[in-house]
């Protein structure tokens, strides 16, 4: 229950963020209380006490650095082994093999996507969803990987009959895929 709430919330946050950034303007979040100078700061800072400190323009989002994730040779060989295991119906074996790869490259989103796809084949929508989201976070800057991860999330949502959320996830995947071709 808790998990669903959280993933829902996460989804909403991400969806809103995506929507807003698409509009090109983010309203500033609530302002922190104005800074008070500390007592030990001395007379130099007393000026700021009478005058509110100057506010700078809202902190901008840095341009994400585009990158592309690859698998190392060891992981690559394990992934192809896992594919063979999956094809022969040995999903447990495939998952165990992918876990070996993840121990070598725990931050590689491609491996989380692979593992999520095995979970999907096992009809474990919750874990497929979580792993898709883990991959999305790790794949920051890699629109290609993020797009595939959103597809995984969409599939996991469809598996659980959450079709409207699945459609949203699909849209994100498509948007990311389009951004690559546009570049």
């Amino acid at each position: 229950m808790m998990m669903k709430n959280w993933s829902l919330r996460w989804m909403t946050i991400a969806a809103v963020a995506a929507l807003l950034s698409a509009c090109g303007a983010l309203p500033p979040t609530s302002l922190p209380p104005a800074s008070q100078p500390r007592p030990e700061q001395g007379p130099g800072s007393s000026q700021t006490q009478s005058r509110p400190p100057p506010q700078e323009a809202p902190i901008e989002q840095p341009r994400p650095v585009p990158k592309q994730f690859h698998l190392g040779p060891a992981s690559l060989s394990l992934v192809s082994q896992a594919h063979k295991q999956s094809q022969s119906g040995d999903l447990g074996g495939a998952a165990a093999t992918l876990e070996r790869a993840l121990r070598i490259e725990p931050n590689n989103p491609l491996l989380w996507i692979e593992l999520g796809q095995v979970r999907l084949s096992e009809n474990d929508g919750d874990q497929a969803d979580s792993m898709g989201r883990k991959a999305i976070g790790l794949a920051t800057g890699d629109a290609q990987a993020q797009s595939v991860a959103w597809r995984l999330v969409a599939d996991s949502l469809r598996l659980r009959h959450r079709n409207s959320e699945a459609a949203e996830a699909d849209q994100k995947a498509a948007g990311l895929a389009a951004s690559i071709t546009a570049r």
């Binding site: 979040t29 800074s35 400190p53 506010q55 809202p58």
Partner: peptide, 27 residues
């Protein structure tokens, strides 16, 4: 010490933080 926004090299006491995009901080 104060939480005011500074440029990285401006002060010995500058520390990096992560805040939501669009946050406005006193300078």
């Amino acid at each position: 010490g104060t939480g005011e926004r500074v440029e990285k090299g401006c002060s010995q006491d500058a520390v990096p933080i992560a805040v939501p995009v669009g946050t406005q901080l006193p300078v």
